[in-house]
Nucleic acid binder design. Sequence first.
DNA 1: ATGGCCACATCTTGTGGA
Length: 254
Amino acid sequence: MQIATWNVNSLGVRLPHVLAWLQANPVDALCLQETKLTDDKFPAAAFAELGYHSVFIGQKTYNGVAILSRSPAEDVIAGLPGFDDEQKRVLTATIDGVRLVCAYFPNGQALDSDKYPYKLAWCDAMLRHAGEQLAAHPRFALLGDYNIAPEDRDVHDPAAWEGQVLVSPPERERFRALLGLGLADAYRLFDQPERSFSWWDYRQLGFQKNRGLRIDHILMSPALRDSCTACTIDRAERKKPQPSDHAPVVATLA
DNA sequence: ATGGCCACATCTTGTGGA
């Protein structure tokens, strides 16, 4: 089984990329973030033609998440229970007996922005949700754009980023709290190239110079970790014409 | 030189992203 996550930065623009990627990478489940489409505009038929079911919650312009899967999604939950939020950022569903959370963590914008305390409170609500889901479902994974680079090695230039959103100590504390539930960062289960990132700025030849951040993650429960045989970032996708600024992350389960 | 790109909305300029 393969599970994957990809922030597509507008599914309206990136639909051809996603369809081509699925044909080349027929994963069992793909979590999408930043679809930026209201539900009436979600291209479910195009995915169905490739043999994928879809569940989705979207809004105009911002946010929006979806889970595409070869088997139908079961027991779907939209949003974070107990956390009132207009923003469409979370879907939870069971695919082939694996409980998946597809999450688009808030960006936070800046440490002095109102969006920063929202991000921290959102992370706290996610910690509760992940803990509850993990307790109920031993085969559990949390996939998505976390908007957190967990360690300095996940940042192209840690000195330049110090004090910025995405790397601040309170955000990294939230990431470590998720690990504290017993979840493993699938990418770090394996030897990986140095300077591995999942997002690169569109500006300043960010990708060509590999000036990026690793902010897209797959965290998995002990039961899944034990069967995980690989986790990779598909950098090649970022080289294509009109790419998303994020690359897909894929985990393989035996 | 503190911005460079991209997507989106409302328009040809502003916001948000990361």
